[in-house]
Amino acid sequence: MKLLLISSSGGHFNALCQLTSFWQNHDRQWVTFPTATTRNYLAQEEVHWAFGPTNRNLPNLCRNLGLAVRIIYQERPDMVITTGAGVAVPFLLFAKLLGIKTIFIESFTRVNDLSLSAKLILPCIDVLYVQWKQLQQRYPQAKLIEVLAQ
């Protein structure tokens, strides 16, 4: 299975790295921001560096949409997985248009409401995972990650 793993740097990247047992045996590519941590951790991985910042930044949204179109069209992943944040939106949108399975894993810090990225892209997500029961109750289409749920 070909995976495209997408996250911003920092906590979102760390959350995706915690899923190593899932993605380590699959053909994969990454999309994230170039920081000392991501460059070091992904030194042996195939990485596409995204344009940042993405918070309410229309020029970088457009650049990342172009990057998404190029990567997804060329690589044709079987699944796009993200832990957020804004960098994932254009990738999930384009992946959904091509019929590629999309998975959004909401941050552990989101207890009562979804992130802006998740809200924006909710119609394009095949599976939304949340880590709190109260968030799943608010969004019944979400699946609860029981291991981390409190």
Rank of each mutant, 00 (worst) to 15 (best):
L144A: 04
L92W: 09
L3W: 03
D27L: 12
V31C: 07
E46R: 02
G66V: 09
C17A: 09
L97W: 13
A15S: 14
Q44D: 14
P123N: 11
Q24T: 11
I81C: 04
A50V: 01
I125M: 08
F94N: 05
Q18K: 11
Q150L: 08
Q136F: 08
F104R: 00
V89F: 00
E75Q: 12
T54A: 14
L114E: 00
K2P: 02
A88Q: 01
F22R: 10
I125K: 01
L148I: 07
Y129H: 01
K119N: 15
T83M: 03
F91I: 14
I121G: 04
L114R: 01
A15K: 02
P90Y: 04
C17S: 08
A88T: 08
D113R: 15
E75I: 05
D126Q: 01
S8D: 14
Q150T: 06
A85H: 02
T83N: 05
S107H: 07
T37K: 06
I121Y: 02
I105T: 04
Q24V: 14
L58E: 08
N57I: 06
A36W: 03
Q131V: 06
T102P: 00
R39A: 09
G52Q: 05
L4W: 00
H48S: 06
Q18F: 07
M1S: 15
V69M: 07
C62R: 10
C62M: 15
D78R: 07
L114V: 04
L61Q: 07
A95H: 03
I145Y: 13
Q131W: 01
L116N: 04
H48Q: 09
G84F: 11
Q137P: 02
C17R: 14
G84L: 11
L3I: 09
L58F: 14
I81G: 06
V69Q: 08
L97Q: 10
L148G: 15
L93E: 05
S21Q: 14
I6S: 05
A118G: 06
T102D: 10
N57Y: 12
R28L: 03
K119H: 09
I6P: 01
T32W: 08
N14V: 13
L120K: 02
I72M: 12
E45M: 12
S7N: 07
L122G: 02
E45Q: 11
T20W: 07
T37D: 14
V80F: 03
A43V: 12
S107E: 11
R28A: 09
L116E: 04
I121M: 09
G10K: 01
A50S: 09
Q134M: 11
L16F: 05
D113E: 15
Q137C: 09
Q134A: 08
S107W: 05
W30M: 05
T109G: 15
H48R: 13
N25H: 12
T32D: 09
R56G: 06
N25D: 15
C17G: 10
C62I: 15
L128S: 08
L61T: 13
T20Y: 13
F94P: 00
F108D: 04
K101L: 13
T83G: 01
P140Q: 13
Q134H: 03
L93K: 07
K133W: 10
L122Q: 08
F104H: 01
L122R: 06
T38W: 01
P53S: 04
I72T: 01
S115I: 05
I6K: 01
L67S: 10
T37E: 14
R39N: 13
A15N: 05
A88V: 06
Q24K: 15
K133C: 07
I105D: 08
L93T: 13
A50R: 03
Y129R: 00
C62Q: 13
I145Q: 07
